[in-house]
Amino acid sequence: MPDFSDVQTTRIQHIAIGLCVILIASVIGLIRKGRLREEYAFIWFGSALTLLFFSVFRRAFDAVARFLGIAYGPSFLLLVILFSGFLFLVHFSIVISRHTEENKRLAQEVAILQKLAEKTDADHGGAKDDR
């Protein structure tokens, strides 16, 4: 197949590589500012590096697609995007569930400790026979 769109491809490749570099840089920036925990940064690092790899070696993507028996490269891309997006969402649901549970537990402990602290205060007056 004659490679007649070589100029355009190169241009979009440059843009893609540039965006990946920006993505990686902002992930690093967020970690340094303490706004992104390392455990989540791994996901974004992994994604950014994967994107970067396929931006640089554009044909590798088609090769992988062909290896998997997918004739049309972009449809493989769509599959990968959908699947990883889905995985990320499940992952975040798990994280949110865990946080909800921990938050609930914390609220319960706080309420109980507050009550015990009040009891100590109340010993100086206001406490009745306390049944």
């Binding site: 609220a107 319960q108 309420a111 507050q114 009550k115 306390d130 049944r131």
Partner: peptide, 9 residues
Amino acid sequence: GVHVVRLPY
């Protein structure tokens, strides 16, 4: 005069 725990939310 009973024990009371009030949840923060």
